[in-house]
Computed example of a mutant assay.
Amino acid sequence: METKIFKPTEVGAAADLIRQGELVAFPTETVYGLGADATNVAAVEKVYKAKGRPSDNPLIVHVADQATVRQFVTTIQPAVQRLMDTFWPGPLTIILPLQPGSLAPQVTGGLTTAAFRNPRQAATLDLIKTAGVPLVGPSANTSGKPSPTTAQHVYHDLKGKIGGILDAGPTDLGVESTVIDMSTAQPAILRPGAVTRADLERVLGPIADSQKQVKPDEVPKAPGMKYTHYSPTAEVQIVDPEVDWETVVTWSQQQPAPVGILATDAVLNRYAWPQNVATYSLGTDIHSASHALFAGLRAFDLHPDITTILVEGFSPNGLGEAYMNRLNKAAGQHHFSTADLR
């Protein structure tokens, strides 16, 4: 299959592929999603096949407006309406109870709830409106690998497997949307993102935290709760804020293979890195770091001689909660320790 690259001015051609039941990757403000007609079961099944994604992992349904959501859910409670009015279009996914049979189990993982998002990326909103259907949109990458933040990342993973890619340049945020469960009596954050806990609590009041590990026989309510995510081929270790980076330099010098260092400019510019170290900048703060994290992991993944990647950690507050959520999954909770020095 030829994978075509569409410019934002070519949304009509991309929408034609969607209506034909093909897959088209699209940009959002967070990461690139893998789009298919959410009402076409055969098309949705192609998404799982292209990604190599377990079929019990539910898919987020991307809509162009609030009215579309009302076609599928049982009710819109006042608190849900406040969320939509405050954060949509934007990087917030809301889990809601479904009307029976309104979406196929291939979309919901067999659950009676579904996750909805109204992205704010103009080209993607045009795509949804032109196609005339809501789109499922898991990250447009091979399942388990770092999420794509450019069309080139998508092409690297899925060329020949999907019909097209709508290329509107790099994404703005770099980490996936916040997911909040509004299908239960107590709202709960299932995945942190750019819409922070503090942002949500200003609208809803206190929120529960359900970022739990899902059991093997349990269907997750949201993406990212059950399976390994965001992992490059190389081993990833987190360098916590309290670690002296001099020890990282010393450790790196001792390694027989090249080492990747993913850190802020303040760290990269402060030390004399040995010749066996390749560096990638996370910029200046948590905002630029969140934007660059997946791209940096992917950059090192293109160098098979790099077997270890050390990544700067941040305090898990505000946007740092989303950053550390993704980084801990990429690292399998492995943190760099001076005990690793030999």
Rank of each mutant, 00 (worst) to 15 (best):
Lys4Ala: 15
Lys7Pro: 12
Pro8Gly: 04
Val11His: 08
Gly12Asp: 13
Ala13Pro: 14
Ala14Phe: 10
Ala15Tyr: 01
Ala15Leu: 10
Ala15His: 07
Asp16His: 13
Ile18Gly: 09
Ile18Phe: 00
Gln20Thr: 13
Gln20Asp: 15
Gly21Ala: 09
Glu22His: 14
Val24Lys: 06
Val24Trp: 03
Pro27Cys: 04
Glu29His: 10
Tyr32Asn: 10
Gly33Arg: 08
Val41Thr: 15
Val41Asp: 08
Ala42Asn: 15
Glu45His: 14
Gly52Ile: 02
Pro54Ile: 04
Ser55Pro: 12
Ser55Val: 09
Pro58Ser: 02
Leu59Thr: 03
His62Met: 09
Gln66Asp: 14
Gln66Phe: 13
Thr68Ser: 14
Arg70Lys: 14
Gln71Glu: 13
Thr74Arg: 09
Arg82His: 12
Arg82Asp: 11
Arg82Asn: 14
Arg82Met: 14
Thr86Val: 10
Trp88Lys: 11
Gly90Thr: 09
Leu92Trp: 06
Thr93Phe: 02
Gln99Ala: 13
Gln99His: 11
Gln99Gly: 14
Leu103Pro: 10
Gly110Tyr: 01
Ala114Pro: 01
Ala115Val: 07
Arg120Ser: 15
Gln121Pro: 09
Ile128Asp: 07
Ala131Ile: 06
Leu135Val: 05
Ser139Pro: 00
Ala140Gly: 06
Thr142Cys: 12
Thr142Gln: 03
Ser143Pro: 12
Ser143Tyr: 08
Ala151Gly: 02
Val154Leu: 03
His156Ile: 13
Asp157His: 00
Lys159Trp: 07
Gly163Pro: 12
Gly164Asn: 04
Ala168Cys: 09
Gly169Asp: 06
Gly169His: 04
Asp172Thr: 15
Gly174Val: 05
Gly174Cys: 03
Val179Ser: 08
Val179Asp: 02
Thr184His: 05
Ala185Phe: 10
Ile189Ser: 05
Leu190Phe: 01
Val195Arg: 08
Ala198Pro: 12
Arg202Cys: 11
Val203Trp: 05
Leu204Trp: 05
Gly205Met: 01
Ile207Glu: 08
Ala208Met: 00
Lys212Tyr: 04
Gln213Arg: 10
Lys215Leu: 11
Asp217Phe: 06
Glu218Lys: 03
Glu218Leu: 04
Val219His: 00
Ala222Pro: 03
His229Ser: 02
Val236Ser: 08
Val236Met: 00
Val239Ser: 03
Asp244Ile: 06
Thr247Ser: 11
Thr250Cys: 11
Trp251Gln: 02
Ser252Gln: 09
Ser252Asn: 06
Pro258Gln: 01
Val259Glu: 03
Leu262Pro: 04
Thr264Ser: 12
Asp265Leu: 09
Ala266Thr: 14
Val267Ile: 13
Leu268Gln: 05
Asn269Asp: 13
Arg270Ser: 15
Gln275Ser: 15
Val277Thr: 09
Thr279Gly: 10
Thr279Gln: 07
Tyr280His: 15
Leu282Glu: 05
Leu282Cys: 01
Thr284Gln: 13
Asp285Ser: 09
Ala289Gly: 11
Ala289Leu: 01
Ala289Tyr: 06
Ser290Arg: 07
Ala295Ser: 12
Gly296Met: 05
Leu297Ala: 10
Asp301Met: 08
Asp301Tyr: 01
Asp305Tyr: 11
Thr308Arg: 14
Leu310Met: 01
Val311Thr: 07
Pro316Trp: 03
Pro316Glu: 05
Gly318Asn: 10
Ala322Glu: 08
Ala322Arg: 12
Tyr323His: 14
Lys329Asp: 10
Gly332Tyr: 02
Thr338Val: 13
Asp340Gly: 15
Leu341Trp: 05
